[in-house]
């Protein structure tokens, strides 16, 4: 089948991809060191142990998410490339989190992997996404809106867990994962902002209403895999780690971010504060 170019480009040059790729390569150079770690499980709350197991499996499920990204980004060369780079980073998170579990003497089991693989993320996500996407909205931009929200909720989840995990070394690792998720969210933001410069005005005007739809019925990967709920590793686990300030911080950040698209973007828009540092500082 002949290649069909997207109606407008995501971003004009690959520099953004270069920066994303190189920064990612520097994030986890010590990953093999984690194999030597021994952590005291008696210091870690049960909810955090469940969280580590759940997120490790979710990150391992990256092949399913890449399928859905390529479904929506397939005709956009750079975004397809990003999907591949992003996948490797999420797999790295899986390895990091798995090694944390192993350091705590509680590694993943064959049952865990089998439970994950029984899930049907791809089809159920496409079904959910199509029901949530506004008519006429560019599917890449819609996915980017969802991506900002999803990655940002991951930032909040890892930040919340880092505050409650009970071991400073583990807290530092979880904060690093949160920092990576900030980069992922930021990539979605940068790309969206780049597309807004070249897309028809009516596409930009759909960003805010699309955000409202996404935030009012946000679904995360764990909701599409029964095993997570069977093992107390579903969305309610994540919510149990959040406090009201976490929720407030996420909603305010996203509202202020997407609110800027209600009118044409201006140059020099004030950057929002670092969500990880903000979350940590509030409880320091």
């Amino acid at each position: 089948m002949a290649y069909t170019a997207p109606p407008f480009p995501s971003f004009p040059r690959p520099d953004t991809l270069d920066q994303f790729f190189v920064a990612g390569r520097h994030m986890w150079t010590d990953i093999d060191e984690f194999k030597k770690w021994k952590l005291d499980p008696s210091k870690v709350p049960a909810e955090v142990m469940h969280f580590l197991r759940s997120t490790s499996l979710i990150e391992y499920g990256v092949s399913q998410y890449v399928r859905s990204y390529l479904h929506y980004y397939g005709e956009d060369f750079k975004l397809s490339m990003w999907s591949a780079i992003w996948a490797a980073e999420e797999y790295t998170h899986y390895l990091v989190l798995r090694r944390m579990l192993e350091a705590l003497g509680d590694g993943l089991t064959d049952e865990d992997y089998a439970g994950l693989e029984r899930g049907d993320f791809y089809d159920s996500y496409l079904s959910y996404f199509e029901s949530a996407r506004l008519d006429g909205f560019d599917q890449r931009m819609a996915q980017l809106v969802f991506g900002v929200v999803q990655e940002h909720s991951a930032v909040i989840a890892y930040t919340a867990a880092s505050k409650k995990c009970g071991i400073p070394e583990l807290a530092a690792v979880l904060k690093r994962v949160a920092r990576d998720e900030v980069r992922h969210s930021r990539f979605n933001q940068v790309t969206l902002e780049s597309m807004v410069k070249v897309c028809p005005p009516e596409q930009r005007e759909m960003i805010w209403p699309q955000f409202r739809v996404v935030i009012s019925g946000l679904q995360m990967p764990q909701e599409h895999v029964a095993y997570f709920n069977e093992k107390h590793m579903g969305s309610e686990l994540y919510h149990s780690l959040w406090d009201e300030k976490d929720w407030s911080r996420m909603v305010l950040y996203l509202t202020q971010y997407f609110g800027r698209f209600r009118k044409p973007l201006e140059d020099g828009v004030q950057e929002l504060e670092d969500p990880v540092e903000l979350g940590i500082a509030e409880t320091a």
């Binding site: 009201e244 300030k245 929720w247 950040y253």
Partner: peptide, 10 residues
């Protein structure tokens, strides 16, 4: 205005 990022909406 911009609400400060640490505003507690709850």
């Amino acid at each position: 205005l911009r609400l400060p990022s640490n505003t507690d909406l709850t």
